[in-house]
Design a protein around this nucleic acid. Sequence first.
DNA 1: TGTACATCAGTGAACGCGCGTTCACTGATGTAC
DNA 2: TGTACATCAGTGAACGCGCGTTCACTGATGTAC
Lengths: 212, 212
Amino acid sequence: MAAVRARSRRGEGERLRADILDAADRLLVATGDEDAVSIRAIAAEVGVTAPAIYLHFADKAELLFAVCERTFASLDDTLERAVAGIDDPLLSLRARGEAYIRFGVDNPDHYRILFMGRPAFTPDEWGSERLLASAAYRHLVEAVEACQASGSLPADISSELAATGLWATVHGVASLLVARPSFPWPPLDDLIDHVLGVHAFGLANGGRPPIP
Amino acid sequence: MAAVRARSRRGEGERLRADILDAADRLLVATGDEDAVSIRAIAAEVGVTAPAIYLHFADKAELLFAVCERTFASLDDTLERAVAGIDDPLLSLRARGEAYIRFGVDNPDHYRILFMGRPAFTPDEWGSERLLASAAYRHLVEAVEACQASGSLPADISSELAATGLWATVHGVASLLVARPSFPWPPLDDLIDHVLGVHAFGLANGGRPPIP
DNA sequence: TGTACATCAGTGAACGCGCGTTCACTGATGTAC
DNA sequence: TGTACATCAGTGAACGCGCGTTCACTGATGTAC
């Protein structure tokens, strides 16, 4: 519970909106339980009464949607920063994958909401078009295409299939670690090296199964 | 809601336990929402009053744990049946991976509970020891070791690391599809072929990143 | 064979709780005249 | 410069709901004598 909050001056009402999103985020990280992020808990954390939430969000779903949107934007930021300055397209793709996994492991609760939640939990729009149109997804497909253009990856494979396969692979590592943190996983660095090494090698060499 | 249930005869009280687990399972599949699986809803589905549940389960967590345990056993069954009769160890490993993905896609709600849920949701014991000791996990490690013994996979890599990497890969495909069913994924067969082909090829060839 | 009785398999009512949301309101603050 | 007033940023109380769980009970059923 935060301290008592001073009422915003006239014209500064929008400040509360940002405070609410921050508080929802804080609660999510602190409790590690999205069920604990209730309208009432958020209001208490902000230092405001529950109905005040409805001055800025139509209902709970809209609020959680806004939280997701912020986190999704920060995922793309993180990935772009991770590959900034890496010229080789394949190394860049690999760095992107590694940064993705680390983002998930470092922000398990956000990651769970974004990519592991029930479809019903996040608003419908996130289902497909939003995800497709998202900066993070577009950047991944572009990164694959850059590899193909440079000859690092074979061009005879759909860039979307390759992007999806890579996404599934890094998502697999991230989401397993997020879902079962107490399992005795190999050291994270080893796991990342192994999985990305295997996948990148297989992809670069055409991804044909070794057995006809 | 099922029809009225006849009271068990004396000595046959255990029948209710099985009926409760079946009902919980049915509810899970029908609603696709684990929050809908409440003690009261289960009781109504069985055709019994809510307190009757407590004749067989100490609390809700124990009930859900029992549901998970059954599903986990059926996952191992499915995988073993899928590889039965496949002699080549690498083909067998591949078939195991494919069967795993299809199990997840075919049983999205069970899969979500087993491998995508909050750690707090499933009882603590599932966290590590249970999963490690599980038949499905042991069988996977053994399958990798069989490949190494036959020379299909390099022996200079930890079988647990390779098993974990493979698990992460198939889990990635399964859990993405489960979490975002409305995303325009490539055809499932293509995705399975691609991801397993890439991973198996990379693994069989040492998994060294193509770039030093 | 008949009957008292213990036991088994439940029932029915109630508990306290936290939830999302609505509604009528209030009091400080900036603005128009 | 002073004051009436509209507006903004909330408050406080209440709603109905479904939840997990507890408790005292009941009525059929098998068993011992």
